[in-house]
């Protein structure tokens, strides 16, 4: 069996797509607050693409994001942005942006003023034009001159993202960016993030809404109790979790006969007959799928559908968190 520690002690995500050259690297990073260890010996390297940072509350996700953003120093280890320490110089913020989880945005400013302030603090040559572009990107043009204090939660999220995108950073760190957004806004934001990732941006999203990351993140980092429990593509992580049975639903021309035939297969250790087909549990995914075709052929049963049901991000996440 491969343990999660073996899997992930040091991992590199998306190494093939490094056209931008932007890179975030954590080397044996630990961070503690007094006696509480928030992050424990975490190493990984991120290149372009979208990476989901997952974990239950208190797992250390926000601490990691803040360390990447240079807002916290690691107690031990190195956090490097393009090879330089994240806390080395404020100039890293020309290449990096953070969208914090906290809703707070200066309520006395209009959305336009907030984004323009971000643009001016970046010393952009044409702050007004960059402001208009960023606001258009997040679809807030109509409400841009209203005070942020009157914005809904979703609108505040979007104006924060506009402020973070105004200087077109190479690295974008987002902490729960979809909070408060309605489904249409979420889809729109996901399209925008995909577009940025395709342009070579490094995007890290911390989120507890797994279904969204399921569609969005090409890779995930799973934090559990301050440690990196797994990293990589979640389906690949699932395949490596050999201590957990793989579960499939199988529909066929004769589910009852197929169930009894499958029980003779040594890799199958559980079959359940349900109204929507058979639920089959196996320890060896590859052997079972090959054996299933053979068993069905021998029993002259026609297979209609084979579908894994525990390879979703949510299943992988639950398995890792429950360990």
């Amino acid at each position: 069996m491969t343990t999660t520690a073996d899997l992930d002690r040091s991992s590199t995500l998306s190494p093939a797509t490094t056209s931008s050259g932007a890179c975030v690297e954590l080397r044996n990073v630990s961070r503690w607050y007094g006696n509480v260890v928030a992050v424990n010996d975490v190493s990984f390297t991120l290149h372009s693409g979208i990476t989901g940072l997952l974990g239950p509350n208190g797992a250390g996700k926000t601490t990691i994001l803040h360390m990447m953003a240079g807002l916290l120093r690691p107690s031990v280890g190195d956090v490097l942005i393009d090879g330089a320490a994240a806390t080395s110089s404020p100039q890293i913020y020309r290449r990096l942006s953070l969208v914090p989880e906290r809703e707070a945005v200066q309520p006395f400013l209009s959305g336009y003023e907030f984004v323009r302030t971000c643009a001016r603090l970046q010393s952009l040559p044409n702050a007004e034009e960059a402001t208009r572009n960023a606001i258009t990107l997040v679809d807030l043009a109509e409400a841009q001159h209203r005070k942020i204090g009157t914005y809904s939660k979703g609108m505040r999220q979007r104006i924060k993202i506009a402020g973070a995108l105004v200087h077109d950073p190479m690295i974008l760190l987002l902490d729960e960016p979809f909070n408060g957004m309605d489904p249409r806004q979420r889809l729109q934001m996901m399209d925008l993030l995909r577009e940025l990732a395709a342009k070579g941006r490094v995007i890290v999203i911390s989120s507890h809404i797994l279904e969204e990351l399921d569609d969005l993140a090409t890779n995930v980092l799973v934090m559990v109790a301050g440690r990196l429990a797994a990293s990589g593509h979640f389906r690949e992580i699932r395949r490596l979790m050999t201590d957990r049975p793989h579960t499939f639903t199988v529909r066929s021309s004769d589910d009852r006969r197929l169930a009894s035939a499958l029980l003779t297969d040594p890799t199958v250790f559980g079959v359940e007959l349900t109204t929507s087909g058979l639920v089959v549990r196996t320890t060896d995914r590859g052997a079972m799928t090959r054996g299933l075709a053979r068993v069905a052929r021998d029993a002259r049963i026609r297979l209609v559908e084979i579908r894994p049901i525990d390879e979703s991000l949510e299943s992988v996440f639950s398995y890792l968190v429950d360990r």
Partner: peptide, 15 residues
């Protein structure tokens, strides 16, 4: 108090 200091700290300006 309200956390908005963060928006100044993540900008390329010496603190």
């Amino acid at each position: 108090d309200d956390g908005t200091l963060l928006y100044l700290l993540v900008k390329p300006i010496p603190r």
